[in-house]
């Protein structure tokens, strides 16, 4: 009796492990949460894209729910997602940009060509702030709540569906 039970246990165990591993196969390895989720936005000090003399720090991101978008002139997907970001700004969501690994000249050129949904742009030419945020490519978008805590992270291009299905609900949730 115990032997029959044991023999039954083997295929059941095998199928269980196989299913567990199989569902891992279908997952997208680049689709993973930011390590900064539920943590405070990292401390930083940087100038703004438009004004080299103006210094900003992490207090910029407290007081109101803010979407922080990491972008660069060199990044094609950043151009494609601009209409979505402009729409989000139109809806009254506070947007702050991080101009990542770029030059002032090219960054400003980008904004005049594709529009500027951002209240302010943090200038991050060496990617120092990006490193603190665990950014490894652009675009990336972070939702920061009124206390300056990171609540949501979107890696890569923001499509109109992403806005409807993920970003707007998240903004509402943390407001």
């Amino acid at each position: 009796m115990t032997r029959r039970l044991l023999l039954l246990l083997l295929p059941v165990g095998f199928i269980g492990i196989a299913l567990f591993l199989y569902q891992g196969l279908g997952r997208n390895p680049s689709d993973r949460d930011s390590a900064l989720m539920a943590r405070e936005f990292p401390a930083f000090e940087a100038s703004t894209l438009r004004d080299a003399n103006r210094q900003v720090d992490q207090t910029l991101l407290t007081g109101e729910v803010t979407l922080v978008n990491v972008w660069g002139e060199w990044c094609p997907a950043c151009k494609q997602e601009m209409p979505q970001l402009l729409e989000l700004a139109d809806r009254g969501i506070r947007m702050v940009g991080i101009n990542y690994r770029d030059t002032r000249e090219k960054g400003l050129e980008f904004l005049s060509e594709f529009g500027d949904p951002f209240e302010i742009n943090i200038f991050d030419p060496e990617g120092d702030l990006g490193f603190e945020l665990g950014v490894y490519g652009a675009p990336e978008t972070f939702l920061v709540d009124a206390d300056g805590v990171i609540r949501y992270h979107h890696k890569g291009y923001v499509s109109p569906e992403d806005v409807r299905e993920h970003i707007l609900p998240e903004v509402e949730k943390w407001r």
Binding site: A35, L36, G134
Partner: peptide
């Protein structure tokens, strides 16, 4: 590194 980029 893990604090910034995760266990990945």
């Amino acid at each position: 590194m893990v604090q910034r980029f995760g266990d990945y």
